[in-house]
């Protein structure tokens, strides 16, 4: 039986792991390779590394880091952050990344997703979507949640699937950092409407939140960052809890 995946997300700034709470207030949470290896050993099913560096130098550091991650980590990992063209995706995949995540660039140029799927296969293309519930329904945001767009969440997710995304990583900005649980309703709707795997992100604060998202929605994976980095939830304990609730995990 296919298992539900638990994915720690590591935000990387100048080669170090940090975590933004509500997209601001960065706190240092250690070396990305060491931390990733620790997660892999403790039963993480996959890792996401998000480069939040904006400078050219920082980008080079990140590429070097991807190579080191591939060398040391024996589970799949996705890299993302500021990826906007086919050549940079190629570089990251060649360095050993299993998947790449695109976010703002896909909103700016949706054709990019078609191009990436054609060039590298849908299996390695993760489209990350940040969204928030507004007066006009769920709206997609770009640039780390700073810019509101005209795009409606569910039709945008479907468009991304149609253009060749292999997975959708959906972060509810309303829930991210709150530790009050995932955006169950939106995740339930999205995971019913799409035929590709959905990764739930934003809001995990305790193990019950993971049980809830896996029992009430059809998401394939759940992602969290700070609660893992600061050991508020340990992955082996989380998996034991999920097993007790008959959620299939490795």
């Amino acid at each position: 039986m296919l298992k539900k995946r638990i994915i720690p997300c590591l935000d990387v700034h100048n080669g170090r792991t940090v975590k933004g709470v509500n997209f601001v207030n960065l706190r240092d949470a250690g070396d990305p390779v060491e931390l990733g290896a620790l997660y892999a050993k403790s039963g993480a099913d996959e890792l996401v590394y998000l480069d939040i560096t904006a400078t050219h130098e920082g980008r080079k550091t990140f590429k070097h880091l991807v190579d080191r991650i591939a060398e040391h980590i024996d589970i799949p990992f996705t890299v993302g952050g500021g990826i906007s063209d086919v050549p940079s995706v190629n570089e990251l995949l060649q360095a050993g990344a299993d998947k790449v995540g695109v976010n703002s660039a896909a909103v700016r140029n949706p054709q990019l997703v078609d191009d990436l799927a054609l060039a590298f296969g849908s299996q390695c293309i993760v489209v990350a979507i940040d969204a928030r519930l507004t007066e006009n329904g769920w709206k997609v945001y770009t640039h780390g949640g700073r810019n509101e767009t005209e795009k409606e969440l569910f039709s945008w997710a479907k468009e991304m699937e149609n253009r060749g995304a292999g997975e959708i990583l959906f972060t509810s900005m309303d829930h991210d950092g709150t530790k009050n649980g995932f955006a169950i309703e939106a995740l339930s709707k999205m995971s019913k409407e799409l035929t590709i795997p959905i990764i739930a992100s934003g809001g995990a604060g305790n193990t019950e939140h993971f049980t809830e998202v896996f029992s009430k929605t059809d998401v394939s994976a759940a992602l969290a960052a700070s609660i893992f980095h600061f050991k508020e939830i340990e992955i082996p304990q989380l998996k034991e809890d999920l097993k007790k609730h008959n959620i299939p995990v490795r």
């Binding site: 039986m1 296919l2 298992k3 099913d45 292999g166 799409l194 795997p197 394939s220």
Partner: peptide, 28 residues
């Protein structure tokens, strides 16, 4: 969902390639 993506259980036969695996082996 398609693709089949993630960790799934392996049922293995007695073959040298697949010896010495844990009792409930998973592969990606």
């Amino acid at each position: 969902k398609i693709p089949h993506m993630g960790w799934n259980t392996l049922q293995v036969t007695d073959n040298p390639l697949l010896k010495g695996l844990p009792s409930d082996p998973h592969a990606y």
